[in-house]
Nucleic acid binder design. Structure first.
Lengths: 333, 333
DNA sequence: TTGTAAGCGTTATCAA
DNA sequence: TTGATAACGCTTACAA
């Protein structure tokens, strides 16, 4: 920067002003700096700037794993949304492991970013760093951190209820529910309650046999749980996966048995990943408005970075959702 | 750090030695520093360290987009492989746009990392920064940068040839090939030549009609191209997608017409993404050894960062591949 | 085995 | 509207 200053015949400070967008500068001075920069091919040293300003221009997105379509798509949306604010996104994956989720929030990585967006799987409310003192934070999905951080919420109860209502509306009575237990997230509980509310409203019994545990919200787990249910002779005419991966696994398991979908079993998911669109039959699902979630999360985080004061209170935004009806739940003609 | 030094009764330098792993230190001194650090909850300031050492501890992975399963899975593998070397991965997506691929390599982002792994879609050999002078670089897939950077190559010709041979071995004669043109990558050309070699070896004609252009290597494009081929009345008994996304799109389009797979048309892809495993029928594909690719790329990059000298010559490693036979190309009984 | 002092390249303070 | 100068928090010669 000194070289630029010398060449432009100004002081270092003026060159700095040029790069930080300080408005009070003679056009002539500006022009001289511009050409000096061009001739020297100079670029500001970001490490030095960071040391001085204590700002990194990066935010992190903390998710379980990228090879789940939902998270990959979310990551892409967050990257795009952050680009609008000139922010670079550092994607950190934790495998859904509590220790690693925690490490991403409190470890050295923390210094690399101005704030974080986290979609927690295993983290509990006690794990959050003291609000305000800690890293500016936006939590996606889980509502159990309300009052401790900003949130972008998915209306889990309503989404699941709407899904179950859709299945009931096409005449299904016995819905195999995947993801209702086995992982102790608040999300799972809320969704299960949504399903039970829909069943109750329709005057249908809530058979606990139909709520299947899964070890993970993955296609593998969905396929295995569905295969086990089929093997056990359990009767059901629909499967609701609490995410698309579970539902796609279920679809796979059902089709593999040679059972027709939706004629024998209707299948639907939640998430509206691109995978759902290209299944055959294509998968009915609930769209959680991923683009909106990503944009809102980034906006909230940017605001929180600008004003970390916790006295102003934390914000919770509930994302819109929408039923996407496809062939996997077509009414039987 | 000064606070720690004061508290431990040593100099700043000694504390620095402690954190950089300088071996010559009395156990007693070490212990005093350790407890001072613990009491103060001190962490080294990474920005300052970076400014001083000119090392960031990060590498970037530059890919077209995360919502393609192949790249999401690759990203996860690279993140895992980099963690072994205590490196953080900054994933940058370019949309396959040449300008953005270039920007990722030469823009300000470049300062954030010690090196980059790039899977280029639109970049040409002329675009590479002067080797050595530029960022330590490892190129995945494209072999057109040989001599300009380290490479992890996919044996495109052989992979495609093996794929076509498999289809021929199950009695298919007219293979619709998706991705053979339309995007001017070297990869596409090599794969097309591999297919042609297989056809020639089997004494089959290479009907140019069967080589379909696609605007992108996506499920959408695969579905559209296949639907168009079906509409046009073109006869074919197999589809080979040059990646799994194209093949899955083809599968979708074929099944949607009510045509049986593989009885009427066999379908196969290249990439061995998890999506292929959960299609129905599940998709035959060529595995390019993604884990090996990721590990090798990271290892090469680490070596190149340690020794950026281009005189030592650039390395090219060809990854192993493997045929994964599944139901979508089962022989007709 | 540890300490002193210089400097990495910015931005902030304050004055001119 | 611009300039001189002091940090930011660390590592690295070099000395002791």
């Amino acid at each position: 920067m000194r070289d630029v200053a010398v060449r432009a015949g100004v002081s270092v400070k003026t060159v700095s002003n040029f790069f930080t967008g300080y408005p009070y500068m003679r056009p002539e001075t500006r022009a001289r700096i511009e050409s000096a920069v061009a001739e020297l091919g100079y670029r500001v040293n970001l490490s030095a700037r960071r040391l001085r300003t204590r700002r990194t221009g990066m935010i992190s997105l903390i998710v379980p794993e990228l090879d789940q379509a939902y998270f990959a798509e979310l990551a892409q949306e967050v990257i795009d949304a952050a680009a609008v604010h000139d922010l670079t996104v550092l994607v950190e994956t934790t495998g859904g492991d509590r220790v690693r989720e925690l490490a991403a929030l409190t470890g050295d990585q923390r210094q690399l970013v101005d704030g974080a967006i986290v979609d927690p799987l295993a983290l509990g409310p006690d794990d959050l760093p003291e609000p305000g003192a800690g890293l500016p934070l936006v939590v996606i999905g889980e509502r159990q951190f309300e009052g401790l951080a900003d949130h972008v919420l998915i209306a889990d109860h309503e989404v699941a209820r709407a899904a179950a209502e859709h299945l009931i509306s096409i005449g299904r009575r016995r819905i195999l529910v995947l993801g209702a237990s086995g992982i102790a997230t608040h999300t799972a509980t809320l969704r299960r309650e949504g399903v039970e509310a829909a069943l109750a409203a329709a005057g249908l019994p809530a058979d606990q046999e139909l709520l299947r545990e899964v070890p993970a919200w993955s296609r593998d787990a969905g396929a295995a749980a569905t295969a086990a249910a089929l093997d056990s002779g359990l009767a059901f005419d629909a499967v609701l996966g609490f995410n698309d991966a579970l539902a796609l696994g279920a679809l796979y398991a059902v089709l593999r048995r040679g059972l027709p979908v939706p004629a024998h079993v209707a299948v639907m998911g939640i998430d509206d990943t691109a995978d759902a669109r290209f299944a055959h039959p294509d998968l009915t699902t609930m769209s959680p408005g991923r683009a909106q979630i990503a944009r809102t999360a980034v906006d909230l985080l940017v605001a929180r970075i600008a004003d970390p004061a916790p006295e102003s209170g934390f914000v919770s935004v509930v994302a819109d959702h929408e039923l996407i009806v496809r062939a996997s739940t077509a009414p039987i003609a």
